[in-house]
Each structure stands twice: as structure tokens, then as C-alpha cells.
Design a protein around this nucleic acid. Sequence first.
DNA 1: TAACTTACTTGCATAATGCAAGTGATTTTG
DNA 2: CAAAATCACTTGCATTATGCAAGTAAGTTA
Lengths: 134, 134
Amino acid sequence: MKPKKRSDCPVSNSLDIWGDKWSLLIIRDLMYAKECTYGDFLKSPEGIATNILASRLLVLEENKIIEKLDHPDSKAKVLYRLTKKGIDLLPIMIEINLWAEKYFPIPADIKAMLKEVKKDKIAFIKSMTKELVG
Amino acid sequence: MKPKKRSDCPVSNSLDIWGDKWSLLIIRDLMYAKECTYGDFLKSPEGIATNILASRLLVLEENKIIEKLDHPDSKAKVLYRLTKKGIDLLPIMIEINLWAEKYFPIPADIKAMLKEVKKDKIAFIKSMTKELVG
DNA sequence: TAACTTACTTGCATAATGCAAGTGATTTTG
DNA sequence: CAAAATCACTTGCATTATGCAAGTAAGTTA
């Protein structure tokens, strides 16, 4: 663990963990899929480099945002999952999507999801959290 | 403008603009102060380097998150302000603070602000938006 | 008008990212 | 059951971004 703490600001502290171009995409994948293997992350459309993926996964794990699980089918595979701390990033992720929707063109499937969000944001978060925890 | 667009994902598109360790801190400063000079940003506790600050301000301006204004007192000074697009990042900023509050120790003044937020999030955003726009 | 601010730029060292190839432990296949 | 494939990474190296210190030009103050 590096002695990174630029200030007492909560925003700064948060960015010290996941404030880069890749971490939130890893977290996004886990929110959509609940469980991902290393290879699953590599398949995402943004095309993360494998060494970067390894280093981000390590930082996220060290900070208890994600955790590793044994894969039920094979010892060669590893499953990654969000912890509660990671799942709690969901409101941030949703607000990012809502902001983006206002200013960029958005894929139809995500637009449909955001329609649900806007009906009842709290209910949406609660239900998705339940799904990810369980 | 660089041809940066890693995917159609709204999260990815957003991170392409402000997904780094500094941009959201600049935006935070503008949310607290409404208007900042170049020197004001440099005074923030995280200690951004002046060349990095210049490059981030440029990217944020190119993406219409912030805008430059003439300083009323002096031609030597420049005022930076959030655009509506920038102000609309407020919900994200709030959720980051709320997440951080759950998992880190938080300065008392920010804690007090978050208490207000939790009383009525929508009202808080509306009133702060109004203040920043006006 | 000389000293000082202000908003940057520049040069250079260091760190992070990106790409291609490699490794060792499993797991599947012929 | 040995060889090929899969899986989760590492490693080496080129490129890019960040960080630091110093410099500069326009504008302001004493």
C-alpha cells in the first residue's frame, strides 16, 4: 500500500482509489455481470491491457472494492465480485449514466435501463444492490 | 481534439473527459467557490502542478464543462466557472461524498453539508444549482 | 518605472500506460 | 496419457502522462 493521501477531501480520497480511466469500467462490468473472470474483463469493448487490468484489480482488491472467489467449475479460473463497499458505488455509477445521457448519445439498452432508474431511483438501487449482494 | 472514444458506454465516455485524479477536484473547487482564478486552483490542498492544471483546464473547457470569464477587477486575472454541463455533475459529486462518508473519516464541515444533503437531496441539488447558475 | 502578480510555458526527470510476447498452473483433446 | 489449449497473470520495452523547477509575457501596484 502506497502512502497516497493527497488531502482530507472525500473526493480526493475516492479518486485516489478509483480515479483513473479504467477502474470504474471494471466496476461497471461487475455491476452488469455480478461475477467476472479475468478474461471477461479483457473482452470489454474498451480493450484494457492485461498488465493494467492486473494492477487495477490489485488496487481494487487492496481497497476492498472487489474480492476474489474460487470458480466452482475450475481451479484455473478466478471469479471477481464486488464487495458491499463496491456495490455502494452504484449511486455514483447511476449518476454518471444520467449525466452522460444528458450530454451524449446513449445506447438503447442503457437508455431503457435509465428509464427504469428515473421511475424510482431508490427502488432501483435497492433492488440492484440486493441482486449483487445475494 | 483527440479522437478518443473507447466505446459507446456512457461511463467510458464520461471518464474520457474527467476520469483522472485531478479534473473532479477542479470541478469540486468551482462548486464550492463558484468562481476561481488560476491561482485559486493552485492553492487547493492537493497541490496540483501548474502544467497539469493548465492541461486539465483546457480539456474541461474544450468539453464545455467550464468556461473562462473576464475578471471584473483586472485584465491580468481570469475567472473560471462551471457551465450548466459542469454544474450537472453535482449529483455525481454528491454521491461520491456520500460514498466516501460511509467508508472514510470525513472533515466536520463536509459532514455538516452532507447532513443537509440527506435531509432532502433533490432540494439541495436544486438550490445549489440555482446558486451556481445565477 | 521598477518590482510584483498573474496565468501560463518549457525542459527535463520520473511514473503510468500500452503493446506484444512469455510463463506456469490447470484442463481439454486426440 | 501425452500434447495442445486455456487461464490468469508477468515481463520487457516503447510511448505517454505526470511532477517539479524554472522561466516568460502581459498587466498591475508602489
